[in-house]
C-alpha cells in the first residue's frame, strides 16, 4: 500500500562488493558446520571472528577501505532486506530511507569507534513486526560492517505506537544476543537477509 515506486528500482541492484563477500563467507560457514541446532546460529558472531583472521593487521589495512563507508553504502546493505510479511524489500517499502541513515564519526581522537544510526519507518503505526525488522537491520549491519561500528537501530519517532519500547529492545545488546540464539527467530531473520546477496 505504501509502495513508493520511486524507491522500488534502485535498491536491490546496488549492494556493494565488500559486504557481499563477507556475507557469502558466512553462508558457507553455516553450510559446512550444520550439525546441531546451535551450529546454525554461529554465523551470528561472524563479525567477531573476522578480525581474528589477522588480529593486528586488520586495524590498519581495513581502515583505508573502511573510510569509504558512507550512508549510501549502509543503505545498500539494508535496503535489500526482505520484509518479513511482504515479498518486497525494506527499501521499496520505504521502511529504510537514505535520509534516515547517519554515520557519526568517533567522538574523540583517541577512539576509532563510529556509530551508525538507522531510523526505520514501519509501514503502519502498530506494526507488530517492527522489532523483527529492526533486529534484521541490526544483524545485517553487525555482520557486514567492521566491528569498529556501533549500530543503533531505532524506529523513527512518531511512526510507531510503541516506538520507545521497541527502541529500548533493539538497543539492548543482551536481548539481541539472546534473540540471535533463538532458532525460530533466527529462521525469520535469515529469510529476511537471504535477499541481501
Amino acid at each position: 500500500m505504501d509502495l513508493d515506486k520511486d524507491n522500488a528500482n534502485p535498491t536491490i541492484i546496488n549492494p556493494s562488493d565488500l559486504p557481499c563477500r563477507r556475507r557469502e563467507c558466512s553462508v558457507k560457514k553455516r553450510e559446512d558446520g550444520s550439525t546441531g541446532l546451535f551450529d546454525n546460529l554461529t554465523p551470528t558472531y561472524n563479525y567477531l571472528s573476522d578480525p581474528f583472521d589477522g588480529p593486528d593487521s586488520s586495524g590498519d589495512s581495513d581502515d583505508d577501505s573502511v573510510e569509504d563507508i558512507d550512508e549510501q553504502e549502509i543503505y545498500d546493505l539494508i535496503s535489500s532486506i526482505s520484509d518479513p510479511e511482504h515479498p518486497l524489500s525494506l527499501g521499496s517499502l520505504a521502511v529504510v530511507n537514505l535520509p534516515d541513515i547517519h554515520i557519526i564519526p568517533p567522538t574523540s581522537p583517541h577512539s576509532s569507534i563510529s556509530t551508525v544510526v538507522v531510523e526505520i519507518t514501519p509501514t503502519i503505526t502498530h506494526c507488530s513486526l517492527a522489532t523483527v525488522i529492526g533486529l534484521g537491520v541490526r544483524v545485517r549491519l553487525e555482520q557486514a560492517l567492521p566491528p569498529r561500528f556501533r549500530v543503533d537501530v531505532r524506529v523513527k519517532k512518531g511512526t510507531h505506537s510503541t516506538d520507545t519500547a521497541v527502541n529500548k529492545q533493539l538497543g539492548d545488546k543482551e536481548r539481541v544476543a539472546a534473540a540471535l540464539e533463538n532458532g525460530t527467530l533466527m529462521g525469520v531473520i535469515r529469510k529476511m537477509l537471504a535477499t541481501c546477496e
Binding site: 586495524g59 574523540s108 583517541h110 577512539s111 576509532s112 569507534i113 567492521p146 566491528p147 569498529r148 556501533r150
Partner: peptide, 9 residues
Amino acid sequence: LFSAHGVFE
C-alpha cells in the same frame, strides 16, 4: 583508558 579491547565493547 581508550580502546581497552580495540574497537570492541
